[in-house]
């Protein structure tokens, strides 16, 4: 049986390994992870408000054939991912308006896309390593070019969310009244789907198609349990994503585990233990807190 100390690296080797964090590829990965975590934390809140968690899963799957086809054509897979994800997002938006339809439409597109992805991957069988990267993510493989793309997308998405955020929130929770007040519900929905698809495409590079949920939806779902305040939800979700990505990268410097595994494990663990915390907090505060006014939420 292995002793505990044998599994953990000694302090000196840990410090030595941490110097790996300053290597160029690691710095790229840290910047990329932080950018993506910021975009994912913001988008994730609206994904939940709009009940589109399943769509994120599907759009990531639609990115899979996009990336493998791009690789077949000797194009950087990130472009294939971006085009396929945005196309898939718009398709889901166009065909899945009625609630009853949405899951069936989304699931059908998802299955078809996965089939195409396997086809393209089998034609370009030399690139099996790339297929693993697309399915499970490899943040350590982020290039300087991709970093620029990530930065531009993050900035665009954050600006779009700041500008449209309040109307989008109104449309998401109260579509009928929003439409009656003349808010362009359809246009906002399209803008959101494009932003969401862009964020999914870049998040795939970190955790891959199959684990996207853990970076995009799980942190926001955790945050929403902790607080009802919209801006605080976004801040907490972003923090969870950033912590997960950074921890994944740091651990990967001294363990042979892929960062995706650590990132997903941390995000999911925080999600799983949060109800224990909120239950404890609510039990402690509820009786006393009721008569005193709560602090003003940041919305109004």
């Amino acid at each position: 049986m292995h002793g505990f100390t044998e599994v953990l690296p000694s302090t000196t080797s840990l410090l030595a390994d941490l110097s790996l964090l300053t290597t160029p590829f690691m710095i790229n990965a840290l910047i990329a992870g932080t950018l993506i975590a910021m975009a994912a934390g913001t988008i994730g809140y609206f994904v939940l408000l709009r009940d589109q968690a399943f769509a994120t899963h599907a759009i990531a799957h639609i990115g899979f054939p996009g990336a493998t086809l791009a690789a077949l054509l000797f194009i950087n897979p990130i472009w294939g991912l971006l085009v396929a994800c945005v196309g898939g997002g718009l398709a889901i938006g166009a065909f899945g308006h009625r609630k009853g339809d949405r899951e069936v439409v989304t699931g059908t597109i998802l299955a078809f896309a996965s089939g195409l992805g396997i086809l393209f991957a089998s034609i370009g069988s030399r690139q099996s390593g790339m297929v693993t990267n697309i399915l499970f993510g490899n943040i350590l493989a982020v290039s300087q070019d991709q970093l620029v793309i990530f930065g531009v997308i993050t900035v665009i998405v954050l600006i779009a969310m700041v500008i449209t955020g309040r109307q989008l929130m109104f449309c998401s929770i109260d579509p009928e009244v929003a439409a009656a007040k003349g808010i362009p519900v359809r246009a906002l929905s399209t803008i959101f789907l494009i932003c969401m698809s862009l964020v999914i495409a870049i998040s795939v590079t970190v955790v891959g198609v199959l684990l996207i949920f853990a970076l995009l939806v799980t942190p926001a779902a955790t945050a929403i349990k902790i607080t009802a305040r919209p801006a605080a939800v976004v801040a907490i979700a972003t923090s969870i994503s950033v912590v997960s990505v950074w921890a994944g990268l740091i651990v990967s410097t001294y363990q042979p585990w892929p960062p995706s595994f650590i990132i997903v494990t941390i995000a999911c663990t925080i999600w799983a233990v949060t109800p224990l915390y909120t239950r404890y907090r609510d039990k402690r505060t509820t009786p006393a807190a009721l008569p005193t006014p709560a602090p003003s939420p940041d919305l109004v």
């Binding site: 700041v162 500008i163 449209t164 955020g165 309040r166 109307q167 929130m169 109104f170 929770i173 109260d174 009244v177 929003a178 007040k181 003349g182 808010i183 009802a228 919209p230 801006a231 939420p297 940041d298 919305l299 109004v300």
Partner: peptide, 15 residues
């Protein structure tokens, strides 16, 4: 916040 959205939910820009 549901009530507040009736007033500010129609406006562009940050809160």
């Amino acid at each position: 916040d549901v009530v507040g959205l009736g007033l500010i939910g129609t406006k562009w820009g940050a809160s």
